[in-house]
Amino acid sequence: MSEFFHQYFDFHIMGAHFSEVLEGFFKNLLLFAIVVVLALVWGLVLALIRQLPGKKLMPLRGLTIAYIDVLRAIPLLIIILLISGGVPYLEFIPKDIRIPNWFGQPDPFWFGVLALTLVYGAYMAEVYRAGIEAVQSGQMEAARSLGMSHSQAMRHVIVPQAVTKIPAPMLNEMISLLKDTTLVSVVALGESVLVGREVLAETFNSSAVMLAGLMFLVITLPAARLVDKLIARNQSKIARGSHIEVG
């Protein structure tokens, strides 16, 4: 047993490399912070396109559904490899954009931002969709019967209600996203897991990788508790709601 602890929980190694790993972890957090904003917006755009009415927009809806399905069906790792390996070849894009080096972050960082946004946009679009579909159809009918356009009804009536129904699943996606920022290490972004593995290659000891894991725990465990609380709150809300309906 002691060998196991030495291999994964050598506090001396953890202490010696703490600041490096933490610096890497800040990179995970920065990546997360940027992607979460972009993916929330992109996911909403996708979900709204998917809800557009009319026969004329069928191709656009079909394209959106295909996008959402395909991006959720391909391993994120492959998307990251594809984008970081492929985008630089697109020579019609100016070099500063195709090999981005902005705000002091190297191109693997921005490729990670793009890949995670594209994929998590698709996941979040599905969460939004569940929220939109959970809004009673009478709400859209009421809004439309008052003369509101589809987009006015979406904006003022449907979406504000939809977002109150999805904080728990959305937070789950965010937890997954934070963890998945580590995958960008495959294109040599110096985030916490890569730093931990560097230490492993140097010391033949996994404690620095474990340390990265512990840093994630500090954030994700309370978040998971919060998800449970939100679910419980939502259920009591539903219970109250049905009581009103009956009473």
Binding site: Q136, G138, E141, A142, S145, Q161
Partner: peptide, 11 residues
């Protein structure tokens, strides 16, 4: 139009 289930905007 007025509906059976009222359909007021709850938010």
């Amino acid at each position: 139009m007025v509906f059976q289930q009222f359909n007021l905007f709850p938010h």
